[in-house]
Amino acid sequence: MTTAASVRRDEPDLSVVVTQLMKGVVYRDVHESQWGQLLQLQPQVRDYVGVIGLTVVVDEAEGYAFLRSRPDLGDDDGPGIPRLIPRRALSFHVSLVLALLRKKLIEFDATGGDAKLVLSRDHIVEIVRVFMPAGSNEARLVDQIDSTIGKVVDLGFLRRIKGADLHFEVRRILKAFVDGQWLAEFDQRLAEYAAELLGDEPEEV
């Protein structure tokens, strides 16, 4: 026998969806229930979070959703709605790792392989090492890269694989933060990164 209470439990719940979004990124493969409810309640969610100066970004193809400040709310809007999600100033090394991971994701997608890109910690160390000054103390270098990897995990762009702590999944939400315009200048940015790490001034052409 179906009761009214059981029917209500099966209905999408706006408060559940918004609460999960407020906590962080909602992933289709991690938050299956909330993801399904979000897809049903997108208009209501947009209206709800819009009142507090936020907008919801949903990528159904890649399977993630997150909140960001409305683009029409600048930092100098006076006494209007305050920015609930502040902009983060990323360190140089975090920016470098994000750039390299994004390039790896592009290469991975071009091969048409599995849906998830998994990299070992040693592989990440090796691709970052190329941009480190020659003669760097090896132990200190690896510690620094490990620390940076931890920060990228905290930001949500890498996820530790359960049962394999030294392997990480590159989360596809990275594509939403490293956009096409940024990628068009990728080689130039890497050259600038290398020059800064080596303490050299970029050459004028």
Rank of each mutant, 00 (worst) to 15 (best):
E107R: 07
E107D: 14
D109T: 11
A110F: 01
T111D: 08
T111A: 11
G112C: 03
G113A: 15
D114C: 05
K116C: 07
L117S: 00
V118F: 02
V118N: 02
V118P: 05
L119D: 00
L119F: 10
S120N: 07
R121V: 02
R121E: 12
D122C: 06
H123C: 03
I124F: 09
I124C: 01
I124V: 14
V125L: 05
E126L: 09
I127Q: 04
I127D: 10
V128C: 08
F131K: 01
F131H: 06
M132R: 06
P133Q: 03
G135S: 01
G135N: 00
G135C: 03
S136K: 06
N137S: 12
L141C: 14
L141K: 14
V142A: 05
Q144M: 11
Q144T: 11
D146N: 15
S147T: 12
S147P: 00
T148F: 05
T148Q: 05
T148W: 07
I149V: 13
I149F: 09
I149D: 04
G150Q: 10
G150S: 10
K151N: 03
V152N: 02
V152P: 01
V152A: 01
V152H: 00
V153I: 15
L155S: 04
L155V: 06
L155F: 04
L155R: 00
G156A: 07
G156E: 05
F157T: 07
L158G: 06
L158A: 10
R160M: 13
I161Y: 02
I161G: 01
K162T: 11
A164M: 02
L166V: 09
H167L: 13
F168K: 05
E169L: 09
E169S: 08
V170H: 07
V170A: 12
R171S: 10
R172K: 14
L174R: 01
K175H: 12
A176Q: 12
G180C: 09
W182E: 14
L183Q: 14
D187S: 12
R189Q: 13
L190P: 00
A191N: 09
A191P: 03
A191F: 05
E192H: 13
E192N: 13
Y193C: 01
Y193A: 14
A194G: 02
A195Q: 04
E196H: 13
E196A: 15
E196D: 12
L198K: 10
L198G: 04
G199C: 04
G199V: 02
D200S: 05
D200Y: 08
E201A: 15
E201S: 15
E201W: 02
P202G: 09
E203Q: 09
E203S: 12
E204D: 14
V205W: 12
